[in-house]
């Protein structure tokens, strides 16, 4: 694979990769290392991609596999993340920006607290993947994905205090 193609792939999927890494690791420096591992795994795995799934699905699958390998065997739950002050959003005023940040961080912590088997399906649903695409990315059936998303939705609503 040429460097240019790889650079284009990283540019095109930087957001997806960052968010998947963040769902596995709260510590920023460890998250950086995980992102590097994911990118390296992509470099190794891409020659095997034959177009049987969309590139986005393939990238998500490789990233989740590295993320899962990162957390398997670790007994301590990652610490919750503090509020970042340097993430200004020019579209919003300082107050609403802080509120949005709080919501985002609460969601991020709630997702990270989910069991791995639910978390993987959730991160892809939050990226806008269809159930079929999630099934393809994780190597499980679409029915299985539907069950997991249903369970995860209830768990997230409880964690975010949105239960009726």
């Amino acid at each position: 694979m040429r460097e240019g193609e790889f650079a284009a792939l990283l540019h095109g999927h930087a957001g997806l990769l960052s968010r998947i890494a963040a769902s596995y690791e709260a510590d920023p420096s460890l998250r950086d290392d995980l992102l590097q591992d994911i990118a390296l795994a992509l470099w190794k795995a891409l020659p095997a991609w034959r177009g049987e799934a969309a590139l986005k699905t393939f990238v998500a699958r490789v990233a989740h596999n590295r993320g899962a390998s990162h957390v398997i065997g670790r007994t301590r739950r990652p610490a919750a993340q503090g509020l970042d002050d340097d993430l200004a959003d020019p579209a919003h005023g300082p107050e609403s920006h802080a509120q949005l940040e709080q919501k985002r961080l609460r969601l991020q912590d709630a997702v990270r607290a989910l069991p791995l088997t639910l978390r993987q399906a959730v991160t892809l649903a939050l990226e806008g993947f269809s159930q079929q695409e999630i099934a393809l990315a994780l190597g499980i059936s679409a029915n299985n994905v539907a069950v997991r998303l249903n369970r995860a939705r209830k768990a997230l609503k409880d964690a975010l205090g949105e239960s009726a």
Binding site: A14, G15, S18, D84, L100, R104, V111, L126, E127
Partner: peptide, 8 residues
């Protein structure tokens, strides 16, 4: 909300 996360 999820997609507002900072990007590498």
């Amino acid at each position: 909300h999820w997609q507002r996360q900072p990007t590498v």
